[in-house]
Design a protein around this nucleic acid. Structure first.
Ligand SMILES: [Mn+2]
Ligand SMILES: [Mn+2]
Ligand SMILES: [Zn+2]
Ligand SMILES: [Zn+2]
Lengths: 141, 141
DNA sequence: AATCTTATTGCAACTGAGTTGCGTTTAGTG
DNA sequence: CACTAAACGCAACTCAGTTGCAATAAGATT
């Protein structure tokens, strides 16, 4: 796990020196309950009535990302997908599988590859992400 | 290498049943000469006088991608970066390193990781891409 | 070489995820 | 309760990539 701390929304925010607001707690609850990275739009829709302004959600996600407990999953699209970082190992993020047919995105929580090594002198790796694309079980039948 | 065929622009197009036009040959020459994935804008600028319309470039890249000899490199940005596929091994693309400070993108042509295996029944992998982010030699000093 | 078919191209207008500026609200401190 | 900086909402913006359609040209056919 990237964060040793608990996954309580309150603690995530406090540890990052972010204010504990209703909206940010809601965003975190949505992300904690999600089983795959979500777009801003998906997050907003899952917040339902408590809906925050689009801009506010983007700014919160940006702050979470800066704080390090949120990742932007690599998807070959214009839309970004966000997820909490707790399922990643230090620099190695869990891989994602993108289905080229139905567009679904899967988290491969239990599939890790070693970190790339022997980079040229001077490269400092912060994060390694892996993306698979192909057909998902629903679409390969 | 993904393609057994030569890297002559003409052959790439003919093998893919695409018409050999001046513009498309120019795009391919630019990509062949590049040492990293390029955006549409960068491609256009490197074509200089022979400049094609933006839309035409996008449509050509789309066709190349469908034909399989061009890849869209995974970069955590809104802009897409394109490169020829000849430096990738079957399903395993060569990794890319993105510097979080200067924004530069590096191709790691000689660094490969094994293909992820033991996916759940039904997943069919077409491509595996790896993205590293961190500081490049220029920025880590 | 002239003709035909249809892939390719250019242009203008569009789309929409993400951003910016700024005035208002509110969490957290004391 | 007052204070201050963080968080918020809204309107307007940006700009990479897309779409529709008419004009052009590759290359196959006569
Ligand atoms: Mn994931
Ligand atoms: Mn590359
Ligand atoms: Zn699928
Ligand atoms: Zn750098």
């Amino acid at each position: 796990m990237t964060t040793k701390s608990s996954l309580q929304p309150e603690e995530l925010l406090q540890n990052a020196d972010l204010r504990c607001t209703r909206g940010r707690l809601d965003i975190l609850r949505v992300l904690l309950a999600a089983d795959r990275p979500l777009s801003q739009d998906e997050i907003a829709r899952r917040m339902g009535r408590n809906g925050l302004n689009k801009v506010t959600i983007y700014r919160a996600l940006e702050a979470f990302n800066r704080a390090g407990f949120l990742h932007i999953a690599q998807v070959q699209e214009r839309i970004r997908y966000y997820e909490l970082a707790h399922r990643c190992r230090q620099m190695r993020c869990h891989p994602h599988f993108a289905c080229v047919r139905c567009g679904r995105l899967y988290c491969l929580h239990d599939h890790y590859l070693p970190l790339i090594k022997d980079l040229d002198q001077g490269f400092v790796i912060h994060r390694q992400q892996i993306r698979l694309e192909g057909l998902c079980p629903d679409c390969s039948g």
